[in-house]
């Protein structure tokens, strides 16, 4: 496979994943704004931070009004991380790697882009927002579904999978990091249940509310939420799950290519360290520090993968 093709596949799936995650973040924020008017601005500010585009936002706007943030995150072409921008980049990558895609994957990507381009051509009214957000999630899911159903399980599959998991781990860590102050036990809240709306927002952002409730029967504590999103090995958006899947994908590449690369060791190292820790330990030594460290290492793994598999040179 061409290095360029590996690069294109990896980023195509990162971008698709990001479009879905951004839609989910907006959804969580919107819901929160509906249920409590007072903290609206704060909530939207934290969502922009989670999306990782706060600097750009502040250079363009001076307040965090709902409509403005929603527009910025969904359709602003000046924002390279807006849903519109990332889906277009995903589709351009798909065009670039077209020979590596099945017809189903290509068409679902192309149709997804055509549909979203239409949907996001004008500012989205709040009355339409739930539908628009659902469509964004569906379009990304359709590509992933077509890919699961039709892609050859070779290196094409591995690079697409790596892109998806790397982006997902990054996203989950960000959600937790921006909200970590809510999860931290304070004198006042020790032993008490978390603010309902806040914890729901965290879980919703990671599409984990239902799974969490199902596993924990409604018993919501900061420890349990953090444990679920960091350490649960069946939760497909948890850090451990994503890391373990990266290890699997890199090992498969090593077998396929008959050559083990440094990134495989790096991913294994990340996973080992994660699984040796416990949520209690993380809280004790500092959740924010833990998450910052994770994000840095996740990034470094991405860079190593790009080097190992000659994405650009």
């Amino acid at each position: 496979m061409l290095g360029k093709t590996a690069n294109g596949l990896y980023w195509m799936f990162r971008q698709l994943e990001r479009s879905e995650n951004t839609a989910r973040l907006v959804e969580a924020g919107f819901r929160m704004a509906l249920t409590r008017q007072a903290s609206g601005q704060n909530e939207w500010a934290s969502i922009v931070r989670t999306a990782g585009c706060d600097d750009l936002y502040r250079s363009l706007h001076d307040e965090y009004g709902a409509d403005r943030v929603i527009d910025f995150l969904l359709r602003d072409s000046a924002n390279p991380a807006s849903v519109c921008s990332v889906f277009q980049q995903a589709r351009n990558n798909a065009r670039m790697v077209r020979p590596a895609l099945t017809r189903e994957v290509w068409e679902s990507t192309n149709e997804g882009w055509l549909c979203l381009k239409d949907l996001l051509a004008k500012p989205v009214k709040q009355s339409e927002l739930p539908n628009v957000l659902a469509t964004i999630r569906q379009r990304s899911a359709m590509v992933r579904g077509a890919w699961h159903g039709t892609a050859l399980r070779n290196d094409i599959y591995s690079f697409a999978r790596l892109g998806t998991r790397m982006e997902r781990a990054d996203n989950t860590a960000r959600i937790l990091d921006v909200k970590y102050y809510i999860l931290l036990p304070t004198a006042a809240s020790v032993g008490s249940s978390l603010d309902n709306v806040q914890w729901e927002s965290i879980l919703r952002s990671a599409s984990a509310a239902r799974a969490f409730n199902w596993l924990h029967g409604g018993e919501t504590t900061p420890l349990k939420i953090a444990d679920f999103l960091i350490f649960h090995n069946q939760m497909p958006r948890s850090l451990v799950y994503c890391c373990a899947d990266n290890v699997r994908a890199l090992e498969e590449l090593a077998v396929l290519y008959g050559e083990r690369q440094p990134s495989a060791d790096q991913a294994q190292g990340m996973l080992n360290e994660l699984t040796e820790q416990s949520v209690e330990g993380v809280f004790k030594s500092g959740l924010h520090e833990f998450l910052s460290d994770f994000l840095t290492r996740n990034n470094a793994l991405g860079v190593q993968i790009e080097t190992d598999y000659r994405f650009n040179a």
Partner: peptide
């Protein structure tokens, strides 16, 4: 892209290629 896909050939640009040991070679993951 269509022809590359239909033929089962690689789709390359100039910067994917270089001369290596007397052949024109494409940069692959290996």
């Amino acid at each position: 892209a269509f022809l590359a896909e239909q033929m089962g050939a690689e789709l390359v640009e100039g910067h994917d290629l270089r001369v290596v040991d007397g052949r024109v070679a494409m940069r692959t993951t290996l």
